[in-house]
Amino acid sequence: MSDKRIMIDVDHVTIRFNMASEKVDNLKEYFVKLVKKELMFQEFLAVKDVSFQVRAGEAWGLIGANGSGKSTLLKAISGILKPYKGSITVNGSVAPLIELGAGFDGNMTARENIFLNGCILGHSEKFMQEHFDEIVDFAELHQFLDTPIKNYSSGMRARLGFSVATMVQPDILIVDEILAVGDYKFRKKCEQRMQQLLKGGTTLLYVSHNISEVKRLCDHALWLDKGVTRMQGDVDTVSDAYMEEMQK
């Protein structure tokens, strides 16, 4: 196992977050905050001193209660956030599925959005042209291609977003609790696609509150609790311990 290449190296990472409150009741408070520079910025450490290493081909599940820093950690790995302390090294291309269709523009048609979204993910127009049919086939949205996205249901948006993002074989796939809106059939289809990518050698980072899904897809797990690592290692051991704690 240890001879495999390290894909993601998270080394003692601490991530800051802004939780400045908008609540300023009077002028005095306003100036006090202004002087203390807390008006727009109030520090909050969302992830504290977390370390783990993911090797090629592994699938990691990130579990923990709401607000425990899972998404923040994923965002830092995708390059959206910079760690405050520590370092994150990522080797290979990352396909982040933090929110499906984050780059969709409601006023544009699905056809235009496929190109826009692909370019946001860093693909070229030519590349998108070549894979256009493949994307539409997977999303099964042939008849709505020229409808503006604002008229789409959330499930349809998710389908389109997932198809665009997983069309290539990325080295690292980051999935953040996004399949909750799809219907049963599409979720199965997505799971199949992820499993297929995994077989192809893709490394997966997966956030979900559905523990059985995590167990099915992943081989390792990391349990975060209020920004601190509670446990990491084999998926069964960690998720069983997590479930036990939750049921207390």
Binding site: N107, M108, E112, C119, E125
Partner: peptide, 19 residues
């Protein structure tokens, strides 16, 4: 690498303006 994105964003602005 992102030059096509620039093209897409500009064409979006222009397309949507008079749609």
């Amino acid at each position: 690498r992102y030059r096509d994105l620039l093209k897409q964003l500009v064409s979006r602005d222009i397309k949507l303006k008079y749609r």
